[in-house]
Amino acid sequence: MKIAVVILNWNGKALLEKFLPSVVAYSKEATVYVADNASTDDSITFVTAAFPSVNIIKNKSNGGYAKGYNDALKGIDADVFCLLNSDIEVTKNWLTPVVETFKKEPNTAIIQPKILDYHNKTHFEYAGAAGGYLDKYAYPFCRGRIFDTIEKDKGQYNKNSQIFWASGACFFIRKQVFERLNGFDASFFAHMEEIDLCWRAFNFGYTSKYVGESKVYHVGGATLNASNPRKTYLNFRNSLFTLTKNAGGNTLFLIVIRLVLDGLAAFKFLLALKPAHSLAVLKAHFNFYFNLPRVLKQRKLMPRKGHYFRTKSIVWSYFISKKKTFKRL
């Protein structure tokens, strides 16, 4: 089985200097690529000189995570793609259990490893933790991380299990499935595109899996951190895109509920003296309305099925019922 580990880079020389050594050292059974999104620093000069075994792909523009990977993966010969953030430290034998799972389970199309916090290695990391799910209103959450509550890794999620979505921080997918789904939705630019892809895979009958025997450490927020209103905008807008495209059942009702809840979130940002984030939610809604005809056309082209949610409302469970960990849901 041919594995391609593909690291998307944009002006990330410092991250490549720090984290590429572990990828090269512990990925002997894979071919490693750095896909550059038209960087203006000397990232590629550095990689070429320091790691001659690493293949370089030069994208013509910075299309973000979604278009960047769509462009880069077109020319790669592999059975499985591993899309790896440039701020991840991998561990010895991290690829072995993933490859074994793909070999044993032909319907498993997408895999995520255990993602721990690089700066606090006893705890899960925010972006993905031990695999993702959606609630009834399509709000994402993870095993090991619900909202801002991040669990300590005590081995409670060591067992391999089916999940609904895998983190884009370290995202394995079979090439044939990626191509069948036409890759990521490039209009997302960044954030939520992996959830959209996993939801489409689910609607086509594929399985996403968490493999706890594989472990990586993620810095997180290296491109856009949580304090950046641009991240708020992309998350709220792309979440609405994802829901509209993929949900089965009474989608209109779900969208109305989400718009109301988003409005409450915007008000909460205002009370917290974060007007830029409140404005970002408003801009996300206006962009969603503008793009709604296009998104509805995408919806018509894809199958849909229900029963995607793990719990009725993660907001209610967390804030009202005070269920702070996945096992209490």
Rank of each mutant, 00 (worst) to 15 (best):
G249D: 06
L243I: 12
V260P: 01
I44F: 01
K18F: 00
I255F: 09
H307Q: 13
P97L: 11
D185Y: 01
A66I: 07
K215C: 15
I111P: 01
L181A: 04
F319P: 11
L252M: 00
S278E: 02
V177G: 06
N158D: 05
V216W: 02
E193Q: 14
E89K: 15
D41W: 06
F164N: 05
Q156T: 00
G64P: 08
R294I: 10
F286Y: 14
E194K: 08
I7S: 02
F241K: 09
C142D: 09
A35W: 04
L15A: 11
A25L: 02
W199R: 14
T149D: 09
R145T: 04
F241E: 07
A50R: 14
C198R: 08
L234G: 05
H123E: 15
L264Y: 08
V177H: 08
K245E: 14
L181E: 02
A72H: 02
F124T: 07
G249C: 06
F267A: 14
D42L: 09
E89N: 12
E213L: 12
D148L: 15
G306K: 04
S167I: 07
R145G: 03
C170T: 15
K297N: 13
V47M: 02
V80S: 04
H123N: 07
N225D: 14
E100S: 11
N93Q: 09
L279H: 07
I115H: 03
A14H: 15
L8D: 01
N182W: 02
N238H: 05
Y217G: 06
N55W: 03
T101C: 12
T96V: 13
A109L: 03
D79G: 15
E105D: 08
A127V: 07
P106H: 01
H218D: 07
E194D: 13
P97V: 11
P229I: 05
G205V: 01
R145I: 00
E193D: 10
L95F: 08
R328P: 00
A138E: 00
S208L: 02
F141W: 12
P303C: 06
F19W: 09
L20D: 03
